[in-house]
Design a protein around this nucleic acid. Structure first.
Lengths: 125, 125
DNA sequence: ACTGGCGTTGCCGTCGGGGTGAAGGTTTAG
DNA sequence: CTAAACCTTCACCCCGACGGCAACGCCAGT
């Protein structure tokens, strides 16, 4: 299939597909006329990229998954490299969760502790 | 005090202070020679901005707090406008927490579910 | 008088990430 | 024949919060 169809089926623009190719995430065979030619496995690659990006992975971080898929594995997560990235991501997420919980505690504390509860006039601004 | 001293005491660069002034968050009286002149209340304003920014507030979001402080209130959070921003922020934080929890669940699920557990060779890439 | 260290304004650069747009050309489908 | 789809390359954008530089003015110490 050509780039337009792949874009439609994957839900991304053709511009985006060329962008992935620039990054080396997507490879295209070429027809005699120079047009890119894709197959179902390329669609799987793009789908893998999109689902990972939606989970918060950077494009670069999807590379091991893509290579894993291209190596013929059933899913992009089948390989050790992908696992490593997943573990790193999990650690990042946990770090963020900890920070956000701390921020939340601080916010709730400030809200629960009105600085001038007895002065009705200080609420006017 | 002049801009250098304020920067040192507040722990920010002079560039940052001028930036806050451009945004209208910080106002400076001027000496005869054109130098900016600050007092302790300005230091309090900068401290307020920094603590909010450290909590994840955007500079624009600190404006109500700053105006509240400048209106003579004991803390920047004393005014209704500041409270509103705090509540919005709390909602934002909760939204992020929910999303991150969902991402975390998804990651853990993928990690706990080896796609090809019986095939030792598929781990090699 | 000179030096060094402040201060002033203004404007462009940066960072990161993930693209988007336009120009200008060729190929294909109907 | 024409419009749509494709090709390439180059450049640009978005966002916020500054950083850095130029090119100048002010002032204290020696």
């Amino acid at each position: 299939m050509r780039i337009g169809e792949l874009g439609r089926r994957a839900g991304v623009s053709t511009r985006t597909l060329r962008h992935y190719e620039e990054l080396g995430l997507l490879e295209a065979r070429r027809r005699a006329n120079g047009y890119r030619d894709y197959d179902e496995r390329d669609l799987a690659v793009v789908a893998e990229i999109r689902s990972l990006v939606d989970l918060g992975f950077a494009l670069e971080e999807t590379r091991p998954f893509v290579e894993c898929l291209r190596a013929g594995h059933p899913t992009g997560a089948s390989c050790a490299g992908s696992r490593a990235v997943q573990l790193r991501k999990l650690a990042e997420v946990d770090e963020w969760l900890a920070r956000l919980h701390a921020v939340r505690r601080e916010l709730v504390a400030q809200l629960a502790d009105p600085p001038a509860p007895r002065c009705h006039f200080s609420e006017e601004n």
